[in-house]
Protein backbone atom coordinates (compact mmCIF):
# COMPACT_ATOMS: atom_id res chain seq x y z
CA UNK A 1 0.00 0.00 0.00
CA UNK A 2 1.04 3.57 -0.57
CA UNK A 3 2.76 5.10 2.43
CA UNK A 4 1.51 8.63 1.80
CA UNK A 5 -2.02 7.40 1.41
CA UNK A 6 -1.80 5.72 4.81
CA UNK A 7 -0.51 8.93 6.38
CA UNK A 8 -3.39 10.95 4.95
CA UNK A 9 -5.82 8.30 6.15
CA UNK A 10 -4.35 8.43 9.68
CA UNK A 11 -4.56 12.23 9.72
CA UNK A 12 -8.20 12.07 8.62
CA UNK A 13 -9.03 9.57 11.36
CA UNK A 14 -7.32 11.81 13.93
CA UNK A 15 -9.27 14.87 12.78
CA UNK A 16 -12.50 12.89 12.84
CA UNK A 17 -11.71 11.64 16.36
CA UNK A 18 -11.11 15.18 17.65
CA UNK A 19 -14.19 16.56 15.91
CA UNK A 20 -16.48 13.71 16.99
CA UNK A 21 -18.35 15.68 19.70
CA UNK A 22 -19.57 18.09 17.03
CA UNK A 23 -21.80 15.49 15.41
CA UNK A 24 -22.33 12.72 17.95
CA UNK A 25 -24.82 12.56 20.81
CA UNK A 26 -24.13 11.71 24.43
CA UNK A 27 -24.46 7.95 24.10
CA UNK A 28 -22.09 7.51 21.13
CA UNK A 29 -19.63 9.77 22.92
CA UNK A 30 -19.83 7.58 26.00
CA UNK A 31 -19.18 4.48 23.90
CA UNK A 32 -16.30 6.24 22.17
CA UNK A 33 -14.81 7.15 25.54
CA UNK A 34 -14.86 3.53 26.64
CA UNK A 35 -13.28 2.38 23.40
CA UNK A 36 -10.58 5.05 23.65
CA UNK A 37 -9.80 4.21 27.27
CA UNK A 38 -9.43 0.50 26.56
CA UNK A 39 -7.42 1.29 23.44
CA UNK A 40 -4.93 3.33 25.45
CA UNK A 41 -4.62 0.54 28.03
CA UNK A 42 -4.16 -2.05 25.27
CA UNK A 43 -1.32 0.01 23.78
CA UNK A 44 0.48 0.31 27.12
CA UNK A 45 0.12 -3.42 27.71
CA UNK A 46 1.62 -4.10 24.31
CA UNK A 47 4.52 -1.72 24.96
CA UNK A 48 5.69 -3.91 27.83
CA UNK A 49 4.93 -7.07 25.86
CA UNK A 50 7.48 -5.97 23.24
CA UNK A 51 10.15 -6.81 25.82
CA UNK A 52 8.72 -10.32 26.26
CA UNK A 53 7.20 -9.60 29.69
CA UNK A 54 3.50 -10.20 30.20
CA UNK A 55 1.77 -8.02 32.72
CA UNK A 56 -1.60 -9.07 34.12
CA UNK A 57 -1.54 -6.05 36.39
CA UNK A 58 -3.20 -3.39 34.23
CA UNK A 59 -6.28 -3.24 36.45
CA UNK A 60 -4.06 -2.91 39.53
CA UNK A 61 -2.09 0.10 38.33
CA UNK A 62 -5.15 1.63 36.69
CA UNK A 63 -7.15 1.35 39.92
CA UNK A 64 -4.22 2.65 41.94
CA UNK A 65 -4.12 5.70 39.69
CA UNK A 66 -7.86 6.26 40.05
CA UNK A 67 -7.56 6.15 43.84
CA UNK A 68 -4.46 8.36 43.87
CA UNK A 69 -6.26 10.98 41.84
CA UNK A 70 -9.48 10.95 43.87
CA UNK A 71 -7.50 10.97 47.13
CA UNK A 72 -5.30 13.78 45.82
CA UNK A 73 -8.36 15.95 45.33
CA UNK A 74 -10.11 14.97 48.57
CA UNK A 75 -7.20 14.73 50.99
CA UNK A 76 -4.54 17.00 49.53
CA UNK A 77 -6.74 19.62 47.90
CA UNK A 78 -5.20 19.18 44.45
CA UNK A 79 -6.91 20.55 41.39
CA UNK A 80 -8.47 17.71 39.33
CA UNK A 81 -6.02 18.12 36.45
CA UNK A 82 -3.01 18.10 38.76
CA UNK A 83 -4.40 15.03 40.53
CA UNK A 84 -4.43 13.15 37.20
CA UNK A 85 -0.72 13.86 36.76
CA UNK A 86 -0.18 12.83 40.39
CA UNK A 87 -2.01 9.55 39.66
CA UNK A 88 0.50 8.76 36.92
CA UNK A 89 3.44 9.60 39.15
CA UNK A 90 2.07 7.50 42.00
CA UNK A 91 1.45 4.44 39.86
CA UNK A 92 4.94 4.88 38.41
CA UNK A 93 6.45 4.96 41.88
CA UNK A 94 4.59 1.78 42.85
CA UNK A 95 5.78 0.11 39.65
CA UNK A 96 9.35 1.22 40.30
CA UNK A 97 9.29 -0.40 43.73
CA UNK A 98 7.65 -3.63 42.61
CA UNK A 99 9.70 -3.82 39.43
CA UNK A 100 12.91 -3.29 41.33
CA UNK A 101 12.06 -6.26 43.53
CA UNK A 102 10.80 -8.71 40.93
CA UNK A 103 12.20 -7.86 37.51
CA UNK A 104 15.48 -9.63 38.17
CA UNK A 105 13.53 -12.88 38.16
CA UNK A 106 11.37 -12.06 35.18
CA UNK A 107 9.12 -14.08 32.91
CA UNK A 108 6.67 -16.32 34.77
CA UNK A 109 7.39 -14.85 38.19
CA UNK A 110 6.84 -11.33 36.94
CA UNK A 111 3.56 -12.30 35.28
CA UNK A 112 2.21 -14.09 38.32
CA UNK A 113 3.10 -11.24 40.66
CA UNK A 114 1.37 -8.75 38.37
CA UNK A 115 -1.64 -11.08 38.24
CA UNK A 116 -1.98 -10.59 41.98
CA UNK A 117 -1.50 -6.80 41.93
CA UNK A 118 -5.13 -5.76 41.48
CA UNK A 119 -6.20 -8.05 44.32
CA UNK A 120 -3.40 -6.88 46.60
CA UNK A 121 -4.02 -3.17 45.99
CA UNK A 122 -7.71 -3.79 46.56
CA UNK A 123 -7.04 -5.42 49.92
CA UNK A 124 -4.70 -2.62 50.96
CA UNK A 125 -7.21 0.06 50.05
CA UNK A 126 -10.10 -1.75 51.71
CA UNK A 127 -8.12 -2.03 54.91
CA UNK A 128 -7.10 1.61 55.11
CA UNK A 129 -10.72 2.55 55.98
CA UNK A 130 -10.10 5.97 57.43
CA UNK A 131 -8.00 7.20 54.58
CA UNK A 132 -9.59 5.52 51.57
CA UNK A 133 -13.19 5.01 52.62
CA UNK A 134 -12.83 1.21 52.71
CA UNK A 135 -15.15 -0.95 50.63
CA UNK A 136 -17.65 1.89 50.10
CA UNK A 137 -15.06 3.97 48.31
CA UNK A 138 -14.92 7.71 47.85
CA UNK A 139 -17.12 10.22 46.08
CA UNK A 140 -15.94 13.57 44.75
CA UNK A 141 -17.98 16.75 45.06
CA UNK A 142 -18.16 17.11 41.32
CA UNK A 143 -16.95 15.63 38.06
CA UNK A 144 -14.00 17.20 36.28
CA UNK A 145 -14.80 19.85 33.62
CA UNK A 146 -18.30 20.16 35.00
CA UNK A 147 -19.17 16.77 33.52
CA UNK A 148 -19.58 18.09 29.97
CA UNK A 149 -19.80 15.14 27.58
CA UNK A 150 -17.47 16.60 24.98
CA UNK A 151 -15.00 17.80 27.63
CA UNK A 152 -14.75 14.32 29.15
CA UNK A 153 -14.39 12.86 25.69
CA UNK A 154 -11.47 15.15 24.87
CA UNK A 155 -9.85 14.43 28.21
CA UNK A 156 -9.96 10.70 27.49
CA UNK A 157 -8.69 11.37 23.98
CA UNK A 158 -5.76 13.26 25.51
CA UNK A 159 -5.01 10.14 27.57
CA UNK A 160 -4.97 8.11 24.37
CA UNK A 161 -2.68 10.69 22.74
CA UNK A 162 -0.18 10.21 25.57
CA UNK A 163 -0.26 6.43 25.15
CA UNK A 164 0.06 6.69 21.37
CA UNK A 165 2.90 9.17 21.62
CA UNK A 166 4.80 6.95 24.05
CA UNK A 167 4.22 3.90 21.88
CA UNK A 168 5.49 5.65 18.76
CA UNK A 169 8.47 6.95 20.66
CA UNK A 170 9.15 3.36 21.73
CA UNK A 171 8.99 2.23 18.11
CA UNK A 172 11.32 4.92 16.81
CA UNK A 173 13.89 5.18 19.59
CA UNK A 174 16.53 2.91 21.08
CA UNK A 175 13.78 1.28 23.13
CA UNK A 176 12.66 -0.59 20.05
CA UNK A 177 16.04 -2.22 19.51
CA UNK A 178 16.70 -2.91 23.17
CA UNK A 179 13.28 -4.44 23.85
CA UNK A 180 13.24 -6.50 20.67
CA UNK A 181 16.72 -7.80 21.45
CA UNK A 182 15.67 -8.75 24.98
CA UNK A 183 12.54 -10.47 23.71
CA UNK A 184 14.36 -12.45 21.06
CA UNK A 185 17.30 -13.66 23.11
CA UNK A 186 18.28 -12.39 26.52
CA UNK A 187 21.74 -13.88 26.42
CA UNK A 188 22.53 -12.33 23.06
CA UNK A 189 21.09 -9.01 24.22
CA UNK A 190 23.23 -9.08 27.34
CA UNK A 191 26.38 -9.86 25.40
CA UNK A 192 25.76 -6.87 23.13
CA UNK A 193 25.88 -4.67 26.19
CA UNK A 194 22.19 -4.19 26.96
CA UNK A 195 21.44 -3.77 30.64
CA UNK A 196 18.31 -5.93 30.59
CA UNK A 197 17.16 -5.11 34.11
CA UNK A 198 17.33 -1.35 33.55
CA UNK A 199 15.51 -1.41 30.23
CA UNK A 200 12.75 -3.64 31.60
CA UNK A 201 12.39 -1.52 34.72
CA UNK A 202 12.19 1.67 32.66
CA UNK A 203 9.57 0.12 30.38
CA UNK A 204 7.51 -1.21 33.26
CA UNK A 205 7.58 2.16 35.01
CA UNK A 206 6.71 4.15 31.87
CA UNK A 207 3.76 1.91 30.97
CA UNK A 208 2.57 1.97 34.57
CA UNK A 209 2.72 5.78 34.67
CA UNK A 210 0.43 5.88 31.65
CA UNK A 211 -1.89 3.28 33.15
CA UNK A 212 -2.09 5.24 36.40
CA UNK A 213 -2.63 8.42 34.43
CA UNK A 214 -5.54 6.80 32.59
CA UNK A 215 -6.89 5.60 35.92
CA UNK A 216 -6.76 9.19 37.14
CA UNK A 217 -8.72 10.33 34.11
CA UNK A 218 -11.27 7.59 34.76
CA UNK A 219 -11.61 8.46 38.44
CA UNK A 220 -12.06 12.15 37.69
CA UNK A 221 -14.51 11.64 34.86
CA UNK A 222 -16.82 9.49 36.95
CA UNK A 223 -16.24 11.39 40.16
CA UNK A 224 -15.87 8.36 42.41
CA UNK A 225 -13.68 5.36 43.15
CA UNK A 226 -14.72 2.12 44.82
CA UNK A 227 -12.49 -0.96 45.11
CA UNK A 228 -14.89 -3.00 43.00
CA UNK A 229 -15.24 -0.49 40.18
CA UNK A 230 -11.64 0.62 39.62
CA UNK A 231 -9.94 -2.74 40.22
CA UNK A 232 -12.41 -4.52 37.95
CA UNK A 233 -10.74 -7.44 36.15
CA UNK A 234 -12.16 -6.06 32.90
CA UNK A 235 -9.45 -3.44 32.88
CA UNK A 236 -6.94 -6.27 32.50
CA UNK A 237 -8.98 -8.64 30.39
CA UNK A 238 -10.30 -6.32 27.69
CA UNK A 239 -7.05 -4.54 26.79
CA UNK A 240 -5.29 -7.91 26.69
CA UNK A 241 -7.88 -9.43 24.36
CA UNK A 242 -7.91 -6.28 22.20
CA UNK A 243 -4.14 -6.17 21.74
CA UNK A 244 -3.99 -9.90 21.04
CA UNK A 245 -6.78 -9.85 18.49
CA UNK A 246 -5.49 -6.74 16.75
CA UNK A 247 -1.92 -7.93 16.63
CA UNK A 248 0.81 -7.64 19.26
CA UNK A 249 4.20 -5.90 19.07
CA UNK A 250 2.83 -2.91 17.17
CA UNK A 251 0.91 0.29 17.77
CA UNK A 252 -1.59 -0.29 14.98
CA UNK A 253 -2.69 -3.75 16.18
CA UNK A 254 -4.11 -2.70 19.55
CA UNK A 255 -5.93 0.21 17.86
CA UNK A 256 -7.59 -2.20 15.46
CA UNK A 257 -8.47 -4.63 18.20
CA UNK A 258 -9.84 -1.95 20.49
CA UNK A 259 -12.20 -0.57 17.86
CA UNK A 260 -13.44 -4.05 16.96
CA UNK A 261 -13.82 -5.45 20.46
CA UNK A 262 -14.82 -2.15 22.05
CA UNK A 263 -17.83 -1.81 19.77
CA UNK A 264 -18.58 -5.53 20.13
CA UNK A 265 -18.42 -5.15 23.91
CA UNK A 266 -21.09 -2.45 23.91
CA UNK A 267 -23.34 -4.62 21.81
CA UNK A 268 -22.69 -7.76 23.86
CA UNK A 269 -23.30 -5.92 27.12
CA UNK A 270 -26.80 -5.16 25.92
CA UNK A 271 -27.45 -8.68 24.63
CA UNK A 272 -26.00 -10.68 27.53
CA UNK A 273 -25.69 -8.63 30.72
CA UNK A 274 -23.92 -11.39 32.67
CA UNK A 275 -21.15 -13.60 31.46
CA UNK A 276 -20.53 -11.94 28.10
CA UNK A 277 -16.86 -11.83 29.08
CA UNK A 278 -16.67 -15.48 28.07
CA UNK A 279 -16.28 -14.16 24.52
CA UNK A 280 -12.97 -12.53 25.44
CA UNK A 281 -11.66 -15.72 26.97
CA UNK A 282 -12.50 -17.61 23.80
CA UNK A 283 -10.92 -14.90 21.63
CA UNK A 284 -7.69 -15.07 23.64
CA UNK A 285 -7.52 -18.85 23.24
CA UNK A 286 -8.24 -18.78 19.51
CA UNK A 287 -5.75 -15.99 18.79
CA UNK A 288 -2.94 -17.66 20.74
CA UNK A 289 -3.53 -21.02 19.07
CA UNK A 290 -4.32 -20.07 15.49
CA UNK A 291 -3.41 -16.45 14.71
CA UNK A 292 -0.55 -15.52 17.04
CA UNK A 293 0.15 -12.39 14.97
CA UNK A 294 -3.41 -11.14 15.34
CA UNK A 295 -5.41 -9.53 12.54
CA UNK A 296 -2.67 -7.01 11.76
CA UNK A 297 -0.25 -9.89 11.41
CA UNK A 298 -2.62 -11.58 8.96
CA UNK A 299 -2.86 -8.42 6.86
CA UNK A 300 0.90 -7.98 6.87
CA UNK A 301 1.34 -11.58 5.76
CA UNK A 302 -1.21 -11.18 2.97
CA UNK A 303 0.49 -7.96 1.86
CA UNK A 304 3.87 -9.61 1.77
CA UNK A 305 2.48 -12.52 -0.23
CA UNK A 306 0.92 -10.24 -2.84
CA UNK A 307 4.11 -8.18 -3.11
CA UNK A 308 6.07 -11.38 -3.50
CA UNK A 309 3.86 -12.36 -6.41
CA UNK A 310 4.42 -9.00 -8.07
CA UNK A 311 8.17 -9.22 -7.83
Amino acid sequence: MNRNLLRILAALVAVAAVALPAFAGAYPLQVARNVILYMALAITWDMLLRSGQISFGIAGLFGLGAYASVLGVLRAGMSPLLSIAFAGAFAGLAALLIGFLILRLRAIYFSIVTLALAEIFRIVIQNLHDFTGGPEGLVLDGVILGGSASGLYWLTLAGLAVALGASWWFEKSKFHFALTAIRNNETAAKSSGIDIFRWLLATFVITSVIQGFLGGIYGQSYGFATPDSVFDANFTLLPLAMALLGGIHSTVGPIFGAVLLGLAAEWLKLQIPYGHLVVYGVIIIIVILFIPGGLYGLIKKANRASEGRKA
Binding site: Y274, V278, Y280, G281
Partner: peptide, 21 residues
Protein backbone atom coordinates in the same frame (compact mmCIF):
# COMPACT_ATOMS: atom_id res chain seq x y z
CA UNK B 1 6.40 -19.98 27.76
CA UNK B 2 4.55 -16.68 27.91
CA UNK B 3 2.11 -17.73 25.19
CA UNK B 4 1.18 -20.69 27.35
CA UNK B 5 0.55 -18.30 30.21
CA UNK B 6 -1.82 -16.17 28.13
CA UNK B 7 -3.49 -19.32 26.83
CA UNK B 8 -4.27 -20.69 30.29
CA UNK B 9 -5.36 -17.21 31.35
CA UNK B 10 -7.84 -17.33 28.46
CA UNK B 11 -8.98 -20.77 29.63
CA UNK B 12 -9.50 -19.45 33.15
CA UNK B 13 -11.66 -16.58 31.87
CA UNK B 14 -13.59 -18.89 29.58
CA UNK B 15 -14.37 -21.33 32.41
CA UNK B 16 -15.33 -18.79 35.05
CA UNK B 17 -17.33 -16.58 32.69
CA UNK B 18 -18.88 -19.59 30.98
CA UNK B 19 -20.19 -20.81 34.33
CA UNK B 20 -21.30 -17.27 35.11
CA UNK B 21 -23.20 -17.17 31.82
Amino acid sequence: ELNQLILTFGLAITFSQGVNL
